[in-house]
């Protein structure tokens, strides 16, 4: 025994171990890393990626992918910000509709859900490969963001709104609360509900799932809708933290998100992986980003390092699943 059990445990906790070593190294190399304020800072930054990546994990578990999360995030943030600040004005009709805080936030999340559902619809109804369908949505949503904002940031959104991104509750940053609750719900869904089981089954073998009476299309649409909604929550957090909706917000966030999913051990071919793995993946990327900045590594090198870490994670994962 226990070499085997020992090994199995090592594999199970490999990303945690990697994270621990990473933190240890950074705290030796930089005296600014291991401080309370830096820790909260990192957590706050990560929470956006965790929101997005939770949805992404569900999609990847069904053997799909969502490239549109970054643009959807930007559009939803902009819609919330725009409605909150300006409402809707229709000059010809001499009509003005004002939005409350809650109303604008809900409108943003509804927009995200709708775009996600649209992704799911094209993927299931017209059999468009997820890669292509969401790539199309990536540019559609970005274009809509530009149209909505006319290319200018929407800033000055009021102190109450800033609470989402910068506030504290019981000594913990609000975005960490939000992403934490989302993760909790997603863990429950994946481990304890029929929907979760169906997600894994579809990723593991779609045709066997279909024959087992699972409504594969419905599950997929639900999953893409959830991912869209979570991207919108991410947009809310980003907009609130900056007190501004940037038209080019969320650029290449899909890549960080996919990286978190993959580093967390979820297989891109579906059926294998977990939400908690993704959380670990997101933390590793966040700590890495933060550490490289603290160490004054050039941003160009940061990208190279991040890419290498992703490669390494997948190679280790492959080696492990071979021995499985």
């Amino acid at each position: 025994m226990n070499l085997q059990t020992y090994r199995a445990n090592l594999i199970r906790f490999q990303s945690l171990i990697a994270l621990f070593i990473l933190c240890l190294a950074l705290s030796i190399l930089s005296d600014k890393f291991l401080t309370v304020s830096n820790a909260w800072n990192v957590m706050r930054q990560i929470s956006v990626n965790i929101c997005i990546s939770t949805g992404m994990t569900l999609i990847v578990l069904t053997a799909g992918i969502d490239l549109s999360v970054g643009s959807v995030l930007a559009l939803c943030g902009a819609i919330t910000a725009g409605l909150l600040k300006n409402g809707i004005e229709i000059p010809s009709g001499n009509l003005y509709i004002g939005f409350t805080l809650l109303g604008s936030v809900l409108a943003g999340i509804l927009t995200g859900s709708f775009l996600g559902a649209f992704n799911g619809w094209t993927i299931t109804k017209f059999k468009v490969p997820p890669f292509v369908a969401t790539l199309a949505m990536l540019t559609i949503a970005r274009g809509l963001t530009m149209l909505w904002t006319q290319g200018f940031p929407i800033s000055g959104l009021g102190d109450t709104f800033l609470y989402f991104g910068t506030g504290w509750l019981l000594g913990i940053p609000v975005p960490v609360w939000i992403s934490g609750i989302i993760v909790l719900i997603a863990v429950l869904i994946t481990n304890k509900t029929r929907l979760g089981r169906y997600i894994y089954a579809i990723g593991g073998n779609e045709s066997a799932s279909k024959l087992s009476g699972i409504d594969v299309n419905r599950v997929k649409i639900i999953v893409y809708t959830i991912a869209g909604a979570l991207a919108a929550v991410g947009g809310l957090l980003v907009t609130s933290r900056l007190d501004s909706a940037q038209p080019n917000a969320g650029m290449s966030y899909e890549l960080d998100s996919i990286a978190a999913v993959v580093i967390g051990g979820t297989s891109l071919s579906g059926g294998r992986g977990s939400i908690l793995g993704t959380v670990q993946g997101a933390i590793i990327i966040g700590v890495l980003n933060n550490g490289l900045i603290l160490l004054n590594v050039s941003p160009f090198w940061q990208q190279v390092v991040k890419g290498l870490v992703i490669l390494l994670a997948v190679i280790i994962d492959k080696a492990n699943s071979k021995n499985d």
Partner: peptide, 20 residues
């Protein structure tokens, strides 16, 4: 191809049709 989710365990496969 159509009968089993090979990567899942025996229990999960047996229960897949009657989860409700």
């Amino acid at each position: 191809k159509d009968g089993l989710v090979l990567g899942m365990d025996v229990k999960t496969n047996i229960c897949l049709t009657t989860l409700a």
